[in-house]
Simulated assay, not measured.
Amino acid sequence: MESNYIYLLIEDNVIDQLVTKQLFKKILDVSEITVVNNGREGLQWLNDHRNLINQPLIILLDIQMPEMNGTEFLKEYENLPEELKRETQIFMLTSSLDSEETNRLKDNSYVTGFLSKPFPAKEFEQILLQNPSLENNPK
C-alpha cells in the first residue's frame, strides 16, 4: 500500500512503539513513522516540522501517557495555528474502547477515530482504503 501520508506516533510505551513501527512496515509497507514519547513532544514536533511537510499527516495518539496525555494534547492542539492543523487526522490509541475518557473524547472535533492496542494494522489499512474522506479530503 503506497502511503500518501506522514505518520506521527505519540506513545510512551517502548514495546507499543516497536510493535506499531513493525506493523506499519510489514502490513502497510510504510517504513517512515515519527515516534515521540508524550503529548508535549508531539506538540513540539508539530511546531518544528508541520510547515515543512507537504503531505497530509496522520497522528496516532495514545490516551494514557505521563507528562502530557492524549486529552491534554488535544486541549493544546486546539490552540495551534490552523496551518499546523490543516490536513491532519488524529486517531486515538487505547487499551480499552469502553473507558469514560474515551467516551469524552468521541465528541472532540479533531479526533477522526479510535483504534485499540496493540495497533490493529489490518483494520487501519481498511480505514485508509475505504474512507473517502481520508483518501481524498483530509480535514
Rank of each mutant, 00 (worst) to 15 (best):
E83S: 09
N47E: 15
L9D: 11
I58S: 01
N79Q: 11
L46W: 02
P138N: 07
M1H: 07
Q130V: 03
L93H: 08
D98E: 12
D98M: 08
E32N: 06
L128F: 12
T112A: 14
G113N: 06
S116A: 13
Y77M: 08
N108L: 07
N47I: 01
L9P: 03
K139S: 13
L28A: 00
P132D: 08
F114Y: 01
W45C: 15
A121D: 04
G42P: 07
L115N: 04
K26V: 03
S31V: 04
Q22C: 02
E41H: 09
P138V: 00
L129V: 04
V19C: 03
S96R: 12
Y5Q: 01
L46K: 03
L61V: 08
E83W: 01
D12V: 13
N69W: 04
L115Q: 05
Y5H: 05
Y5M: 02
K26W: 11
L28D: 03
I59K: 04
R40S: 11
I27W: 06
I127S: 00
Q22P: 09
Y5V: 01
I90W: 01
K122S: 06
I6H: 03
L43M: 11
A121L: 04
L128T: 00
D107R: 14
Y7T: 13
Y7Q: 08
P118Y: 01
I6P: 00
L60V: 05
H49Y: 15
I127K: 02
R104Q: 12
V14Q: 06
V14D: 12
I10D: 09
L97A: 06
L74H: 09
E11R: 05
E101A: 10
D98R: 08
S133Y: 14
I6T: 03
L134W: 02
L105T: 14
K106M: 07
F124Y: 03
L23F: 10
D107S: 15
A121I: 04
R40Q: 13
N136F: 13
Q64L: 06
K75I: 14
E72Y: 04
S96I: 06
P132L: 10
I10N: 10
E76W: 08
T71P: 04
L18S: 02
F24G: 07
S3K: 14
L134E: 04
E2D: 11
N38M: 13
L115M: 07
Y77D: 09
S3L: 14
E135P: 01
N54S: 10
L93F: 02
N38R: 05
E67L: 13
L105P: 11
Q22D: 15
V19I: 15
D12C: 07
P132Y: 02
W45I: 10
I53F: 15
E87Y: 01
L134M: 06
D12M: 11
Y5R: 08
R86E: 14
I33E: 03
N79V: 02
E101H: 09
K75Y: 12
I59H: 00
F24P: 05
Q89F: 08
T94P: 07
